[in-house]
């Protein structure tokens, strides 16, 4: 480590991380290709072999784990993530959030397209007849409160980390994880006892597309929080440098705001 730093100081006159060749991008591409191919073939009833899809999913998860392990090593033990590199990583994540924003924008577009001028096939009314929409004051209200509160606990955890307060940071992060899990469970419950399905007119399609898109992201966000909890527990995050934690926080707040829009549009305006 010491030698490595000395070497870097001697020969590297820039603060950037010049990455070494890594097998994971290539493996990931092949894994993704196989996954999408098998998924498409299953969706079109060309094959019904679940085994291949399962192997693909396991491969993808395995590659993801190994790749993140490499990055964590570079960040924590090799000191490759200088301030400049962290800045770049943050910027990259913000660009990724922009693409997410556009995805949500597209889905909202689909919702408004169907809702503002309902087509003849669904009787030109929104929601279509004999579809019982969900009430905004039922479970969705509880979900909204939980997500808002998780934003507060997230900030609590982040500020405690910056204040070098390990216990409070972990406690806040634990609360956030708990609220995230609860949100997912409540959402499952809501879907399970919903009176309409994905296949019930365009109303069901756009509703489940929007809320499902958000739900998938909450699942990913909760996974990221778990990862951060593990890193915090292992003393991998410091008060000065916690880029991964920062980006997870960004994603979580993004989801928070996105849910507010989903709630207002899908559960209040569109019913």
């Amino acid at each position: 480590m010491m030698q490595k730093n000395m070497k870097t100081n001697l020969y590297q006159s820039n603060p950037f991380h010049l990455v070494k060749p890594s097998p994971w991008p290539m493996y990931l591409v092949f894994g993704l290709f196989g996954f999408l191919l098998n998924l498409t073939m299953m969706m079109h009833n060309i094959t019904d072999n679940y085994m291949m899809l399962l192997i693909n999913v396991i491969t993808l998860i395995y590659i993801g784990l190994l790749w993140s392990r490499d990055i964590m090593g570079e960040a924590t033990y090799l000191g490759e993530h200088t301030s400049k590199v962290s800045e770049g990583l943050n910027m990259g994540f913000l660009l990724f959030l922009m693409t997410e924003l556009m995805w949500f924008f597209g889905m909202f577009w689909a919702y408004f397209y169907s809702a503002l001028t309902p087509s003849v096939e669904i009787g030109e009314i929104w929601p279509p007849m004999s579809i019982m929409p969900m009430q905004a004051t039922d479970l969705p209200l509880f979900n909204t409160l939980m997500l808002l509160m998780s934003g507060a606990t997230m900030t609590y955890s982040h500020h405690a980390l910056m204040a070098r307060n390990r216990f409070n940071s972990m406690f806040g992060l634990f609360l956030t994880m708990l609220l995230g899990f609860l949100f997912i469970i409540c959402q499952y419950f809501e879907y399970y006892y919903c009176s309409y399905t994905l296949a019930d007119s365009v109303y069901g399609s756009v509703f489940f597309m929007l809320t499902g898109l958000h739900g998938m992201h909450v699942m990913t966000g909760t996974l990221l929080l778990c990862l951060n909890f593990y890193r915090l527990y292992n003393y991998q995050l410091t008060s000065e440098k916690h880029t991964g934690f920062n980006t997870s926080i960004l994603l979580w707040h993004f989801l928070d705001v996105a849910w507010l829009f989903v709630y207002i549009v899908c559960y209040y305006w569109g019913v």
Binding site: M42, M43, N45, D48, E121, I122, G123, P128, M129, S130, I131, Y188, Y191, Y192, Y193, C194, S195, Y196, T197, L198, A199, D200, S201, V202
Partner: peptide
């Protein structure tokens, strides 16, 4: 209604949608 419970072909896991509850 005509627009409800649409099935042009089966889902690849069967006939029921993903979150198929007892109440659908």
């Amino acid at each position: 209604m005509d627009y409800q419970n649409m099935r042009h072909r089966k889902f690849f896991w069967g006939d029921k949608s993903l979150f198929w509850g007892p109440t659908n």
